[in-house]
Design a protein around this nucleic acid. Structure first.
Lengths: 209, 209, 209, 209
DNA sequence: GATGAATGAGATTTCATTCAT
DNA sequence: GATGAATGAAATCTCATTCAT
């Protein structure tokens, strides 16, 4: 009987936990949308709660501060990107192809509005303390490391020019992933065109051949 | 006697005007520093005033709102960049060289901390209304036009690859100018290295030859 | 069980709503007092909050701006007056008697310090925009219409002199209702004396018979 | 020589004093206009100075505070009204005629926009301290006394009904002088019609004969 | 005397966070 | 667990008044 009860309790708990996770997901999605539209400070906890359909108090049961909430969103986006990276590494044979796929998927997400961590850099959070927390408490460092590794491999395999410092390559890649930022929604080119252009830049430069 | 007096009056006025301009400059510089460090919302008018060493009221004598102050800062940086562009066009013969110089000067300024309009894009202002004001009330549009023209000329002269849309080229350039943004101060490479790397990317891509 | 719970929930909600309404009432009363004493601009939200015993933030939970608060106060007083008008129309047979009752009740309220909408006209709000809002968003227009109708009836029934324009009659009535405004508290005559004097003026003039 | 010089000095001084008085007059007129349009608090010293065409500093050479300025304006209007009263007493034989003239002249001024002290009661100053100062430092008390005397004479001569307290008569008169306050500019009746209607009220009441 | 730049107290309003129910 | 009323710190902005020139 005790076992049975425990079982039930476990099921209940896991049910509750699942519900909890689902709601947390819902919160993050709503926050994502509003944050990208309005920026960090113009987004109020009130508005997020309203969008999700819960009370402000409940929001604080899930995230203990606004900063924490945004940090969790970052983390989620980062881990999704890391997963994408895993998949790409598995499915694409060369570093070139891998970069191309990464760019393509990234642009797609951005254009579809599911947007991405890159964009989050432009939501305008208070820089100092937050930057630190991103580095220490999220996978951001891990992402940088793996992208760095990607380029290093490219260099070792002879694909990439060794005279460009890897750290600069990484930065260039991130910068190019976030470049859409200056476009109006209506003028956005397609993800494919963007990817093609950027890859052409990356692999041949913009000079006429 | 009247002439003499007028003269004095004029001198006085121009003295006052000079002082006024100097103080305005001082305000903009302080604002620049704090804004880049903290972002738009985390920067309070109080703090700017304190930094400049004046009272809040005096701040509002020079700029009638926080937004106006930042807009003025934008404008100042924009016109400085446009001046740089003029100079570069005059002094450098080819589009390639011109881009190189633009990048070099930009990186220099950024690294020296006098920082630049590019960085201002990342201070995180409430997006909608402000973006509009930047476009209507500053030289931002003019800058975009002239950079666009630069690339178009490059294409026409046969220097640049015509298959990449000019608008994407422009965005790539701005993105690459702002890429430092993700570095810690201590890890910043020199402006020369940065420029060289970015130019290599721009003109030959990152592939090994 | 559900029904029971619903019941409880409803009770709770209605309790909260009652509390909310009570507090709103409390705010309006405090505001009324201070406004009449100091005028619109000299009355700060701080002071109203302090008087009610709540925080400034809470004030804004009930009224989204100072102007809105005062508008709500206006509306409350207006609707109370309209109610009084209904009652008077029902209870008094002639227009003369009706006017007399209206004046009497009004003076009573004023003297008792529960004061009235008439007085509110003298709290000195910024004239233009506010006057507009009063006309569009409160029952002020309705009140004027009904008083106008009262005098028109009086004319049609042969009670009142048709040579005086109704609009002027209405203004005279309002003016006479608000005339106490210039007295010190200590010198105020009784409501009955006031009413009798004003009625004598209204119905016979001040000339000796 | 000394006498001559003194003479000159005197002339100069009186010239200066005349200029000073003229400017003071100018200030009061501008203040009058703006105050009636915007109310006390919404009228800034800046705006008055701008309207007059002098600097704020100069304003303070004439009036040592905003309150003092308004008090001076009150006093000016009051003494003008007292002068009018003198003239009317001289020119009109009966109390009735005198009241009629007072009303007519008052309405004229109001409608012509030169407006009057009565209107000033509605500019919404902080009530307590200011009311006191008006009573102690201006001729307001004197005005009340003389109007009181006017009605008392009317009573003694048998013209007015003795059963209405004089103080109430005075208040009614002031109230009726200020009643236009609730009209839109466009709907204002002529001074003559207003006067006639109000006199009819005063002397016969509004009942049909 | 005249000026207007400078001040600083104070006003309205917003919002992350807490906590009693 | 969920709620949302309450808080209070902080932000932007205004303006009467002063004072060095």
């Amino acid at each position: 009987m005790t076992a049975e009860k425990d079982n039930k309790t476990n099921q209940k708990r896991s049910l509750k936990e699942r519900q909890r996770a689902e709601r947390e997901q819902l919160i993050l999605e709503s926050a994502n949308t509003i944050l990208l539209e309005k920026g960090y400070t113009a987004t109020s906890m009130d508005e997020i709660a309203r969008e999700v359909g819960i009370s402000k108090g409940t929001l604080y049961l899930h995230f203990s501060s606004k900063e924490d909430l945004v940090l969790a969103l970052f983390e989620e986006k980062l881990s999704a990107f890391l997963q994408l990276l895993d998949q790409v590494l598995e499915e694409e044979p060369t570093t070139q192809k891998r970069l191309e796929r990464l760019l393509l998927e990234t642009y797609k997400e951005i254009i579809e509005g599911r947007q991405m961590l890159i964009a989050l850099q432009s939501i305008g959070m208070d820089r100092n303390s937050f930057r630190e927390r991103v580095n220490h408490e999220t996978s951001a460092g891990s992402l940088t490391q793996r992208i760095t590794a990607l380029f290093d491999e490219g260099k070792q395999s002879g694909e990439f020019d060794e005279s460009i410092p890897t750290s600069i390559m990484v930065s260039m890649l991130f910068a190019l992933m976030g470049m859409f930022d200056h476009w109006k929604q209506s003028e956005l080119p397609s993800a494919e065109v963007l990817t093609q252009s950027v890859c052409q830049l990356l692999f041949r430069g913009i000079l006429a051949q």
